[in-house]
Design a protein around this nucleic acid. Structure first.
Lengths: 349, 349
DNA sequence: TTGTATGCGTTATCAC
DNA sequence: GTGATAACGCATACAA
């Protein structure tokens, strides 16, 4: 009766478990920490009673003394942009399996809330922080972080040397986009495409800049004229509008290389529904990301793929390595991209 | 020098701020708590020095003594399903503005990880928990929760009385789907539709069951034959397949009412690309949710809308009300739905 | 308005 | 293998 009441509201404490099991509080603590010495049968008893009483160690208290919150901060501009949401999803699953929880923070791509947000986040003392280079400035991140070591997801510019920032520690996940872009351009070239337009993403975004620069480089290496660049913001509507302008006002193109899949969808819809052009017979389209919608029949998009699982595994690996060895020099992992061929690139007719 | 080193790694503590400002630690604490008495100039000084030293109160320590973690647990099956991600996005923004952070947990729709997940989550001691009825069983949730009062997002079945569970406290956000569904059916009827097929979602989902039952009721009230029900799982691929079957093997339909927007997209693509039927001239389509993609030109979907902002505001309101009054009886908020008319319902030809 | 003393629930250090 | 005791960083009741 009294037990039931105690049990239902206001979580049980280690002391209550200890009392029930006739052991000391310390024993209860040990029962929940694998690498401590405790007689097996005693541990078993304690765990059983803990379960009966619905006891779980309080992580806030644990964090206070151990210095580990088991919280991983994830800073994103848009949860609902398709790529981000798929990454957050997979990351949360993976972190959960390792005993961490995902703490979500939203920022803006214009850096306007960096300081406020980071100070706010620091209060939660995450063990690790995952940020995208384009969302938070490195210096600001360094300044506002507590003991957490941030992981930067970066898209290195072609030719740039491995970016080991001086001073503060920055672990890094590098995504090399060259392979995928080269495959895409080769495919386009093989189908007789000559004039490629690059449908840009948010201007400040490093992912975008790296994409454009790499595309330029690849095209030059293949003896092609530089791409026409048209404005975009990674979103559907801007892509739609820019594509219409390209063909109505501008000079058109044989192919559109979009900064991400969603932009590619916008471009395709503009081509088909507004400009009455066929894809790929009149214009080919290539995207970036390979989000789930890319295989939908309405689009069936040929796109440069980031392997989501690889990415998430690399991130988790970085987190664990850093936590096991807080003073190690900057860690780095690198991933490639590749082209997924579907139906939006083909012979011109 | 020494300061710089202190500052860069391992966060500053209240004591360090106090020392620098020549005040007691307590004054520092007060400076960060608005409703305490402290000479304004003193508070200002402390806050300035805190900023210099990059100090933020440690929330783990604060949680330990205040009993508030400022964490809101959100339990979802899929971050990346479109509706969820948009809701998480908006919710995170709103919570951030109120000083809370979103703690994300992934579960499964088959309840298979309920107990493990909830015990895990309780360790983090969230101040509040938001769950969807279909994802976690009420009894399990009650058993494993600490002091947090869960908020359930529910789609009440038509005719069911307000579902105040006996025993433990459950706050609730009810979404009434009747208005939107009635508007949709009226519109379809007005365009001469007679045979409606309901493209179902995950079978166990209450959202799905409520949608189907309400649709039945509304159609009966309007003197229509009951809908044909075809299988689905809220996803694109199943919707595509089911729609093809409906027309190839089954008896077809004048209109498809899909359990959500993504299903509607799958149905539309099947109709147009596989079955060579026109939407809406041959078959009308209606969806549910009004996700961002619904207005894309390829789909331009007529759909039953949940107002995202209203939803998020209601949730935040529930959280704050509960926190301000922990012993209040079960709180409840109720929202309506309405039809957004776009281009997938029209005259049959 | 301000400072002192106490406790939040846990793990780490040290004895035994 | 086990138990006492001291931290962890902060907020509050109380005294001044």
């Amino acid at each position: 009766m009294a037990d039931g009441a105690e049990l239902s509201r206001g979580r049980a404490t280690a002391e209550m478990v200890a009392a029930r099991a006739n052991v000391s509080r310390v024993a209860v603590s040990r029962a929940f920490n694998p690498h401590t010495s405790l007689k097996p049968e005693k541990r078993e008893l304690i765990l059983r009673i803990a379960q009966e009483l619905n006891y779980t160690p309080d992580r806030a208290a644990r964090a206070l003394v151990s210095g580990r919150t088991h919280l991983v901060g994830v800073i994103v501009p848009d949860v609902c942009s398709n790529w981000e949401s798929q990454e957050i999803d997979a990351l949360t699953t993976a972190l959960q399996a390792e005993g961490f929880a995902t703490l979500l923070f939203k920022t803006r791509t214009d850096y306007s809330m960096d300081e406020q947000l980071l100070a706010y986040m620091r209060g939660f003392n995450p063990d690790s922080v995952i940020a995208f280079v384009e969302n938070v400035k490195a210096r600001t991140l360094a300044k506002f972080l507590g003991r957490a070591v941030p992981i930067y997801v970066d898209y290195p510019l072609p030719g740039a040397t491995s970016a080991r920032e001086a001073g503060p520690l920055f672990d890094r996940l590098n995504i090399l986009q060259r392979d995928g872009i080269d495959q895409a351009v080769a495919l386009l070239q093989g189908y007789g495409v000559r004039r490629i337009a690059y449908l840009a993403g948010v201007e400040k975004s490093r992912a975008n800049v790296a994409r454009e620069n790499t595309l330029r480089q690849v095209m030059a290496a293949r003896g092609m004229e530089p791409p026409t660049v048209i404005a975009g913001d990674f979103g559907y509507d801007a892509a739609y509008q820019s594509t219409v302008n390209l063909f109505r006002v501008g000079e058109g193109a044989d192919a559109i290389f979009a900064a991400n899949d969603v932009s590619a969808f916008g471009a395709m819809d503009a081509l088909r529904h507004e400009l009455k052009l066929r894809v790929p017979e009149d214009v080919s389209v290539v995207g970036f990301d390979d989000i789930a919608q890319a295989h939908w029949k309405s689009y069936n998009l040929t796109t440069v793929k980031f392997d989501l699982d690889e990415r998430v595994q690399a991130l988790v690996r970085l987190i664990l390595r850093r936590l096991n060895n807080p003073d190690a020099p900057a860690l780095e992992e690198t991933l490639d991209t590749r082209l997924v061929v579907r139906g939006t690139v083909g012979a011109r007719r």
